[in-house]
Each structure stands twice: as C-alpha cells, then as structure tokens.
Design a protein around this nucleic acid. Structure first.
Lengths: 112, 112
DNA sequence: TTGTTATATAATATATTAGTTATATAGTGA
DNA sequence: TCACTATATAACTAATATATTATATAACAA
C-alpha cells in the first residue's frame, strides 16, 4: 500500500506535476518526458522513480524504452483522505450558516 | 493565490495531516493541537505556520489564544488540479475497455 | 562485434526541512 | 506590578531532497 506521505510529497514538485500533466495526454517515454525540461535525463529518471514509488505512474517495458502512464491507485487514496477535510469544511460551513441565521446580531469575539 | 507546491508539501507531513484531521472536528488552540503529539510547542507552531501558508487553515485571535480552523481555498485548488488526472485516468480506462472489447486477441508488445 | 540510443545508478554538492533549546512578546489574573 | 500562560521567533543541528556529472547496462542497428 502506498503512503500518503510519498504521494503528497511527489505531487509537491512542479516538475513532477508537469510530468503528470503530460502523461494525462497519454503514455510517454523517459526521453519524451525529459525533452521539454531544462534538466538532465538522470534528473527526470529520478522524478519518475519518485512518481512510481508514490503510485502515481506505472511503467512497462518496450525494448529499450520504458513508457510511463498514469496509475489510478494513489489518486484514489488521496481523494479518500481529502474527503475527510471536504466533509468537515462543508459541515463547518453549514454551522456558520446556522449561527448567522439564528443570531444575526450576536457578539463576535474576533471583531476589532 | 496559494501555490500547489506549498499545499501538497504541507499535506506530505503526517503530523500536519493529523493536525488537519483534528481540526476537522472543530477549532482548536495551539496548545490543544500540540498536546497529543510528542513534540514541543515551537515545532507545532511551525507546522501551523506551514499549514496557514498553504491556505489549509486560518487563525483568529482570541485574547492570548490563536484558535485554528480548516480553510477551504487550498482544498478547492487541489481538487481542481487533481481533476485533470482523474479525467485522464477515466479516459484511459475507457480506451483500455475499448481496446479489450475490439481486439480480444490482439498482440501485446509488453507480453513476455 | 561495434557504435548508438534509452535508461538507470553512483558519487557528490547544495538546499530545504523538521526538530531541538533558548528566548521574546503579549495577554491574564492576583 | 508580578508571575503565569499562550504563542512566536531565532539559532542551531540532523536528515532529506534535488540537481549535476560520470558511468553502467541493455537493446538496437549496421
């Protein structure tokens, strides 16, 4: 099972997010992915390793090429975790709504 | 506007995710948040600063206390970005479905 | 087999991060 | 005012991350 630590930290890097965005258009090899970046091939290889370790991409073997594609597992796991926050946020919002509805002129401690 | 770099990197830390999970239950002060962790108060203060900088929490002033609560902006932004990947994944899945449906005995380059 | 292409790994330098302790600041309450 | 509580900041250390160059490995093409 993939850890959220790895997944979120993989997504924290702009190069890696750009790689994922490129893969959203379809499979690509390491060189194809490296080409648009001002970065050496080994650097891209390491980013791909991070993305793979995070469960965000998968690779297959095609001769001497290693085409990459998006993998679904990590995204699903992230979504699941974010659901907790989303639910809490919508609940808080409802509560605030209620407070504003029931005490439209109540004191606010945080007012200046 | 908040950067995805900051938001994802804030979420990559398990202590910070635990803090967010606690805040999902409702507002809490710095000391309340620090208490369950084997960590000093300054360490928690810094985590909160990171979460605030990432747009994941907001703080208000209540005397000498600084109660924290979840903030919605960053989550919304993350969701928006992840939508790109989600869409691509579902598209790829559909394509795979089609491929399997139309050529059930086609050659596969990646077969051993 | 030899040269070339595609990719991975190792060694290394630098930057960033997360924690610590010590200290500063500001509100609280006697 | 004085002691106490709540929080923030600074200085420092240790661990981690990212990039580079050099090199290894494996497939391909002549």
């Amino acid at each position: 099972m993939i850890s959220l630590d790895h997944t979120f930290s993989a997504l924290a890097d702009p190069t890696r997010r750009a790689i994922l965005a490129r893969l959203a258009l379809g499979e690509a090899t390491v060189m194809e992915l490296a080409q648009p970046f001002e970065m050496t091939q080994p650097a891209v290889s390491r980013h791909l390793k991070v993305l793979e370790g995070a469960g965000l991409i998968a690779r297959r073997i095609d001769g001497s090429k290693r085409p990459c594609r998006l993998a679904p597992n990590a995204i699903a796991e992230i979504d699941q975790w974010l659901a907790i926050l989303r639910e809490a946020l919508s609940k808080n919002y409802d509560q605030l709504d209620q407070v504003l509805a029931t005490k439209p002129s109540g004191k606010r401690k945080d007012a200046p």
